[in-house]
Write a protein that binds this DNA or RNA. Structure first.
Length: 263
DNA sequence: ATGGTAGCGTTGCTA
């Protein structure tokens, strides 16, 4: 099974790039974040035309929104929410065969890394704390569960272009990294991408739009992740970060992350 | 130290 996660940053604006991604990578399961469309306007027919017969989505007008496109039957879906908000960041589907796939979009957290000053940062920390407690209670190592999405946190020094310069930048602050590690340890989850790419190797999935030339200095961060439960770790076969997608016409600021599993 | 771009949907908010 080939799973791809991608923060698409508007599914309607980038429906042609979605077709391009499908043609190039042919995923069996595609997790999308920031679809930025309310449910009645979701491009369901276009997704079906690509061969995704099973589609779950939970969107809203203008912001956020997540979707799972699948060639395998989706037997059940759950729309989850955290911090008493209904902001469409978490969609869980059970696929035929029993594997559960969770599509996640963790809050970005604003600019100032101080929860006392910046309510968005406080929300991000609360979101991760709540979801950690939930996974600790709900998921066991022997369960077959995949988490995929934009976690908006780059945990390793090699997950950012400059560890030193990003220590005080939201996405790589010590408090966020510690919370992400605590979340991962709660089951524990296996980082499916770092399972194949050694930790000393720089690896990014996002490059800011606010740069004249994203390739010139390669100031990226690894914000998008795929985690699996220990039960699925032996099934991991390969991973790929589709860096070339950042050079597509009118690209998302995130690129697709692929994981192949023998399931 | 600062400001830079993109998307949504119309004016400022979010990233």
């Amino acid at each position: 099974m080939r799973l791809v996660t991608w923060n698409i940053n508007s599914i309607r604006l980038r429906i042609d790039l979605l077709r391009q991604l499908d043609a190039v990578m042919a995923p069996d399961v595609l997790c999308l974040q920031e679809i930025k469309v309310d449910d009645p306007l979701f491009p369901l027919a276009e997704c079906r035309a690509m061969g995704f017969d099973h589609v779950a989505f939970h969107g809203m007008k203008g912001y956020n929104g997540v979707a799972v496109l699948s060639r395998r039957p989706i037997e059940a879906e759950r729309r989850l929410s955290w911090c008493d908000r209904d902001d469409r960041r978490h969609l869980a589907v059970r696929l035929a065969g029993g594997v559960e796939v969770h599509c996640l979009y963790v809050p970005a957290g604003g600019d100032i890394p101080d929860p006392d000053i910046n309510a968005k940062f406080a929300h991000k920390l609360d979101f991760v704390r709540q979801i950690t407690d939930w996974y600790a209670a709900e998921v066991r190592p022997e369960d077959k569960v995949i988490l995929a999405g934009d976690f908006n946190i780059a945990p390793l020094p090699t997950d950012v272009w400059s560890h030193r310069q990003l220590l005080s930048v939201v996405s790589h602050t010590p408090v966020e990294v510690e919370l992400l590690n605590r979340w991962q340890a709660a089951v524990p989850f296996v980082d499916a991408v770092r399972h194949f790419v050694p930790p000393e190797e720089k690896l990014f999935t996002w490059w800011s739009y606010r740069s004249a030339d994203w390739q010139a200095n390669d100031r990226g961060r690894r914000l998008d992740h795929v985690w699996v439960t220990p039960a699925l770790a032996p099934a991991l076969r390969a991973t790929l970060v589709a860096r070339e997608a950042r050079s597509w016409l009118r690209p998302s600021d995130h690129v697709p992350v692929m994981v192949d599993l023998d399931i």
